Computed example of a mutant assay.
Amino acid sequence: MLKPAPHAATVPASGIREIVDLAMQAATPVRRLEIGEPDFPTPAHIVEAAFDAARVSTSYVQSAGMPVLRNAIIERLGERYGLDLALPEVVVSQGAVGAVSALISIVAGPGDEVLIPDPAWPNYEMQALLAGATPTFYPLRPEAGFLPDVAEIEALLTPRTRAIVINSPGNPTGAVMPRSDVERVVALAAARDILVISDEVYDEILFDGEPANAAGFDRDHVASVFSFSKTYAMTGWRVGYSVIPRSLSAPFASVLETTLSCVSSVTQAAALAAITGPQDQVAAMRTAYRRRRDLAVGLLREAGLDIGTPAGAFYLMIPLADGADSRAAALDLVRQGVALAPGSAFGANAPHHLRMSLAAHDDDIAAGVRTFLDWRAATDGGLRVARAGSAG
């Protein structure tokens, strides 16, 4: 019998996708609040640009991305963040996930360590393991508003540390790191010649605080990763982009070439229309996410829950009773008609939380909160839910 290589066998399955699969297969309708999938359609001018491009050409393009798109990204980042970038520093990837995976594989391998927040998007850990590296976790504690303690990050650094991942605004927490903390993390990394991978895919979904703009502090030790997915409701188009140190630009492009050859020319044309076209729908979506955040937070606080207000992204962490099993709770809630992601899917520091996505319609959020509150009252905050087989 064929067996996977040892490093591949260590990559865990996604706890988010477990709930996604159950919700999609449910015999009765389920309100989908478990995944970061904007409920808005991709703006029409972006779709039309893709149709126009497909009629002209569907050939291979540059592995690092079409220069016209990369130059438009340079202009956008210059206007928004004051970055003065050259073409080799900007690379287009298969979504942000492709960029993070490539970056980790370039700088880390067997025997190396990658520092990752906990809780966090689970793909960071999965990608580190796939590269043969060891993920080391720094805590984002609920009582600290899910913000990191930079001193704790520093204490975890070893001679084997090759990368530090930061994410602001954060998934799953919605927390926004103070710029002073971002600068301190970058300074720690630069002093030790470590790469900071700054996941900034929610940079346009910011309600309070400032964007991370980590590359603005040190262009030699920071890779800032962005995506069209959340900003423009383009999750299925699979286009991301990164600002990377020049020393990594050639190997980065080579890794992309070996894994995907190039990002689709058609979707890159759509991304070009997105970044150069009208931005009013970006603002409208951000306003809607803020409204939905306030709706969910208000309903939960009215019910007596101690809920923090996320400063960005479109997620909300909901506490269960101490000792409750978030996976068992999420499985059981699917049977009640609402899908939420278990905190355990994001690491060890939020085992008694559920993540609610605020990317769904207001009515679904309100109804989902009511279903959760009824379930919470019937189960003592989730304590009565069986620890296994809840969705069987």
Results as ranks from 00 to 15, higher is better:
153 I>G: 02
153 I>W: 01
155 A>G: 10
155 A>K: 13
156 L>H: 06
158 T>E: 00
160 R>A: 15
162 R>Q: 07
163 A>G: 09
164 I>S: 05
167 N>M: 11
171 N>C: 14
173 T>W: 12
174 G>N: 12
174 G>W: 12
177 M>Q: 12
178 P>S: 10
178 P>Y: 06
179 R>A: 15
180 S>K: 12
181 D>L: 07
181 D>H: 11
184 R>Q: 11
186 V>K: 03
186 V>Y: 00
187 A>P: 06
188 L>H: 04
188 L>Y: 05
188 L>T: 05
189 A>I: 03
190 A>W: 05
190 A>F: 07
191 A>M: 09
192 R>H: 13
195 L>H: 02
195 L>I: 03
195 L>Q: 03
196 V>M: 00
197 I>M: 07
198 S>G: 02
201 V>W: 08
202 Y>W: 15
202 Y>S: 14
204 E>L: 13
204 E>I: 02
207 F>E: 07
207 F>H: 14
209 G>N: 07
212 A>G: 13
213 N>W: 07
213 N>K: 08
213 N>T: 14
217 F>N: 11
219 R>V: 10
222 V>K: 03
222 V>P: 02
223 A>K: 00
224 S>K: 08
225 V>Q: 02
225 V>N: 00
228 F>N: 12
228 F>I: 09
228 F>G: 12
230 K>H: 15
230 K>G: 14
